[in-house]
Design a protein around this nucleic acid. Structure first.
Length: 174
DNA sequence: CCCTGATTCGC
DNA sequence: GCGAATCAGG
């Protein structure tokens, strides 16, 4: 594959957004993550602050410290929270309805993890990434959750809960 | 073992 | 210039 201007631009954009080399490689297509890293060096783009695994892609996923602390004894109850994330220049807000089924005892403070999408595209899903779709498949911003899923489960722990709601009806989540 | 970026070096 | 192999780390 050739490094056309378009591809280089896309590389720069995605790299500056903090995506990992392998993610960028998947989105560009036809190149390995090594190729991406090599290109990044050749372009003299700023490397990642910390070397090694942690990666901006993972670290970047900070959730807004919602003022809503964990309610101590609301046994099984629906909570709604709004998450805000930034994707490039676009700020997206999502309202997520969460059915808290977890045992309250293990829910001290801020224990409910808000699902933070890694905005993966189809080609970068692996055996252990959450395949929960987000957005309109017809539209461009369509992506998948992409967070780690236990074993080879198709979904992360959060979306597995949404997927497996025992008695058919009752919750609607978007 | 999964992943991350960094570096080297033959092509 | 390119990127696979390798290294180093979480």
């Amino acid at each position: 594959m050739n490094w056309t201007d378009e591809r280089v631009e896309k590389l720069k954009k995605l790299w500056s957004e903090g995506l990992s080399a392998s993610q960028i490689a998947a989105q560009l297509g036809g190149v390995s993550r090594n190729a991406v890293i090599g290109k990044v060096h050749r372009l003299c783009l700023p490397g990642r602050a910390k070397a090694g695994g942690s990666t901006a892609a993972t670290t970047r996923a900070k959730r807004p410290a919602t003022s809503a602390p964990r309610a101590p004894n609301y046994a099984s109850r629906m909570t709604t929270r709004t998450v805000t994330r930034t994707a490039g220049a676009t700020v997206m807000k999502e309202e997520v309805e969460i059915d808290v089924i977890e045992d309250q005892e293990t829910a001290p403070v801020g224990n409910v993890v808000v699902p933070m999408s890694r905005r993966l595209v189809l080609t970068e899903l692996t055996d252990r990434t959450c395949k929960w779709p987000i957005g309109d498949p017809m539209k461009d911003e369509f992506h998948f959750c992409g967070n780690d899923s236990p074993d080879t489960s198709p979904y992360c722990t959060f979306h597995a809960k949404l997927a497996y709601q025992p008695s058919g009806e009752r919750r609607r989540a978007r």
